[in-house]
Simulated assay, not measured.
Amino acid sequence: MSKTFFVTGTDTEVGKTAVSCAILEAAAAAGLNTAAVKPVAAGCDDQGQNEDALALMASMTAQLPYAQVNPVALAPAIAPHIAVAQVGRTMKASQLAGFCRGVMTGPHDLVLIEGAGGWRVPLSPRETLADLARELQVGVILVVGMRLGCINHALLTAEAVLGDGLPLAGWVANQPGERMTCHEENLDTLMHLLPAPFLGEVAHISPWSPVEAGQSLDIREIMQ
């Protein structure tokens, strides 16, 4: 079975997709076969496709149909459990896990499962995306958005992941916009306090290049 990791973030809009694409590009540069799944995405175009899922497809080496990469595509760009309720559907972690396993059992060296928002984003009144990661029993990669409040958010998320019984396989510092005040001091604090390997820092690149971003990451430790 492939090496599989669940990618979560300290919040929404911290760069989970950007970092996931960078990891996929770094793996491809190392000669690895890769795939990714965005099990649930809220916010789709007129064709029912989500830009994050399309970005993952562009960076992974596997040629998979869109529906396999993003099995639950919801039109409204709102919290997934609210979007599902608005269209009269339901979501279960076990169902999403089945979609993910369909890709995980393929001939891939690395599979990334990208979450939505942060660790505790609800799927229903009873389940969150954390339940999906627990169902899959995979390591977690944490994307830390380097902005004010990131230390608290990162430590709380790491505590929640470990408390749910999953290993924190690594973390990536992502700069989603302008460089924060005292960037290096915050980064140094995170490197000392987060109980996981530091995989690297993704700078704010304009125009965006996942290939260039991937060159700043070291994924050897998670692939051992």
Rank of each mutant, 00 (worst) to 15 (best):
M1D: 04
S2G: 09
K3H: 15
K3C: 13
K3D: 07
T4I: 07
T10Y: 01
D11P: 07
G15V: 02
T17G: 04
T17I: 04
A18I: 10
L24W: 12
E25V: 14
E25I: 15
A27G: 13
A27Q: 08
A27K: 05
A30P: 15
A30T: 13
L32F: 09
N33E: 14
N33Y: 14
T34H: 11
T34G: 13
A35S: 08
V37Q: 12
K38C: 05
V40W: 11
V40C: 10
A41Y: 06
C44T: 15
D45K: 15
G48S: 10
G48V: 15
Q49G: 13
N50A: 09
L54Y: 13
L54D: 14
A55W: 07
L56S: 10
L56K: 12
M57D: 08
M60S: 11
M60G: 13
A62Q: 05
Q63W: 10
P65E: 14
Y66N: 14
Y66V: 11
Y66F: 10
V69R: 09
H81V: 12
I82M: 12
A83N: 05
V84G: 05
A85I: 07
V87R: 09
G88H: 10
G88D: 10
R89A: 12
A93I: 01
Q95I: 11
A97Q: 14
G98S: 13
G98Y: 04
G98K: 06
C100E: 03
C100A: 05
T105I: 07
L110R: 01
L110M: 02
G115C: 03
G117L: 07
W119P: 09
P122W: 00
L123N: 07
S124K: 09
S124W: 02
R126W: 13
T128S: 10
L129V: 12
A130R: 10
A133D: 10
A133F: 06
R134C: 03
E135N: 07
V138I: 08
V138S: 09
G139T: 12
V144N: 02
R147W: 01
I151L: 02
H153Y: 02
L156G: 04
A158V: 07
D164V: 03
P167H: 00
L168N: 01
L168G: 04
A169M: 04
G170L: 00
V172T: 08
A173N: 08
A173D: 09
N174R: 02
Q175I: 04
G177A: 11
G177C: 14
T181K: 11
C182Y: 13
H183L: 05
E184W: 05
E184L: 11
E185Y: 00
N186H: 01
L187C: 01
T189W: 03
M191G: 03
M191D: 08
H192R: 15
H192T: 10
L193Y: 02
L193I: 09
L193E: 11
L194Q: 00
P195K: 01
F198N: 11
G200S: 03
S206F: 05
S206C: 06
P207Q: 00
P207I: 01
W208H: 06
W208T: 12
G214Y: 00
S216G: 12
D218M: 09
R220Y: 07
E221P: 12
E221A: 15
